[in-house]
Computed example of a mutant assay.
Amino acid sequence: MKINSTVLLTLVLLILMLGAGSVSAFLGFNLGSSALKGVTTPDGRPTTKFTSSKANNSQQTGVALLKEEDILKTVKARIEGKTKAAKSEKLDEDDEEINSSKQKPEEKPKEVTEEKPQPGFPVTAENQGVTFSVQSARYSGGDLLLKVKMQNKGADSVRFLYSFLDVTDDKGRTLSGSTDGLPTELPANGPAFSGTVSIPTALLDDVKSISLSLTDYPAQKLKLDVSNIPVEKAAEQF
């Protein structure tokens, strides 16, 4: 009895499995067929491609071609119009230049006026063809500015070290000064060089005149002494 019940149970299970498989296969087939509705295979025939391409070409080829004579006439007319416009513009510009030249009066050349020397200047020292002159003096920004000029008319070049420049007042006191724009070497038969010597005004209380002394370097065979430079009433500007 136990064996018969087992066989019966096995048969029931097999029948259920076959039924479930059949149902799932049927449902899958229905789903697949419904999904493929409306899908068609591509047409691989060459004749249809040729006919469709010819139809498209026939639709596109509808452009009208211009005649060569018409194109040349159009280009010639445009060129002539541009040249006429350019000529008229040039004539207008020439007329404007002529009118403006007539209206503008003739400008007279400006006369070059030399600067008048400051009273008491220049103060010059010369030795062996080398000149050292103070052209003017003025107070500016807390300093006394001496405008100096140097020139070498001798046959040999001369070198200077401006840290050796001695500045003294009329009471014999040594003052500090700095130079700007002066060359370290004066060439033989060379041009004049200009520069400035600056002295702090705090050192110039009750000072009426100062003196400058400069020697060449390193030989120190040439000495330039510029004495009695008036600074009491120095001009405000050069």
Rank of each mutant, 00 (worst) to 15 (best):
S5T: 06
D216W: 00
S178R: 10
N57F: 15
V158P: 02
D205C: 01
E106P: 08
L13H: 14
R138N: 11
K37A: 13
A55R: 09
D166W: 11
V130K: 08
G38H: 04
L13T: 15
A20I: 10
F164G: 11
K208R: 06
K208T: 09
S136Y: 03
F26Y: 15
Y162E: 08
S100N: 15
A64N: 04
K221H: 03
T6H: 07
K221F: 13
S52I: 13
I15L: 12
L72A: 10
K54C: 04
N127G: 03
S176L: 09
D95L: 09
S211T: 10
D180Q: 12
D95E: 15
I199V: 05
S133I: 15
R173N: 04
D94M: 07
L8G: 14
F26K: 05
K108L: 11
G19C: 05
E97K: 07
A64K: 15
A85F: 09
G21N: 11
S227C: 04
F121G: 03
K110D: 12
S53A: 02
F50R: 10
L144F: 10
G19V: 09
M1F: 12
T196D: 02
K171N: 06
K102M: 14
L222R: 03
I98W: 08
S140D: 15
N57D: 15
E115A: 11
G44E: 14
L27E: 14
T113D: 03
S140G: 13
S24C: 10
R45H: 11
V231G: 01
S136E: 09
A202L: 13
D169G: 04
D92E: 15
T51F: 04
L31T: 15
S198P: 01
T40K: 09
P119A: 04
P122K: 02
L144P: 06
Q118F: 07
S53Q: 14
M1T: 14
K171F: 08
V23T: 13
N56V: 13
A55M: 01
S209M: 05
G154W: 05
